[in-house]
Amino acid sequence: MTDTNYKYDIYLSYSRPDVDSVEKVARYLSDIGLKVWFDRWSLVPGVSWQVTLEEALGSSFTIAVFIGTSPLSNWQKQEWKTSLIKQKSDSLRRIMTVLLPGSTSKSVPSHLRKLTHIDLRKGLENTYELNRIIVNIGHMYGDRGELDKAIEYFEMALEIAEELKDIRGKAARLNNIGSVYQDWGKPEQALEYYQKALEIDEELKDIQ
């Protein structure tokens, strides 16, 4: 089991023209409980911003690279390249790309096209897509063997799915939690969540 002890859940990398859109996403993620590093909130006057950003990258569990209508800035390119280098010493550390309104899949640099995409092209209020960020973090913790943290994030995603009345999403999150408990060697808890997910699946079949 690897203990991450990262200070931030997610680091937000973006081009300056997209700052207002990214701040809306940052506020949403922060409000639901994620520890977000967003430069507009965190840079301190009088301190080297390059040093601060490099330290923040090293202290963040994952990085989200926002793709807007403008080309990636030179510093944004440096951020994701630095993250790719850090993956060599921490192969379970991941990068996500976030497509903002007005962007296209062709806007994504070739090196990032195989990565998980969060698609906000239909609007920044797409909470279904934003919830996928939490789910991805849950999977990352699970892959690292930090099962208590994996459950924490899957439960957070489950709560959002319930608020959205996303029945399929709720079933998927219940299965996620059941799988973690199974890996943890807790079959009774796993069975409880699997059963709840199965009941939802049966209800959906009846509706169809």
Rank of each mutant, 00 (worst) to 15 (best):
F61S: 12
T97R: 03
P187N: 07
T82P: 01
Y141I: 04
L29S: 05
A150T: 06
L84E: 12
L112Y: 06
R113N: 02
A26P: 07
N136F: 05
T82V: 06
D119P: 04
D31F: 08
T97Q: 02
D18E: 14
Y193R: 13
M156F: 04
I134W: 04
D201G: 04
I137K: 02
N131C: 07
E203I: 02
K170L: 03
V108F: 08
K7N: 09
M1A: 09
D31T: 13
E146C: 08
F66I: 10
E54W: 15
E125G: 00
G102P: 11
R93C: 03
G123Y: 08
G145W: 11
A157T: 04
Y194G: 02
E23W: 09
K114E: 09
L158N: 06
R173E: 06
D148Q: 11
R121C: 03
L53D: 12
K81C: 09
D90C: 12
E146R: 04
A64W: 10
K24H: 13
L72N: 13
L115V: 05
S91Y: 13
T52G: 12
G102A: 01
L53N: 15
L124F: 09
I134Q: 01
Q50I: 15
N74T: 15
L124W: 10
V19E: 14
G68K: 05
L158A: 03
D18F: 09
S110T: 14
I133T: 01
L57I: 15
R40N: 13
I118N: 02
D206N: 08
K77T: 11
L57Y: 14
F38N: 08
L84G: 03
M96D: 03
V51D: 14
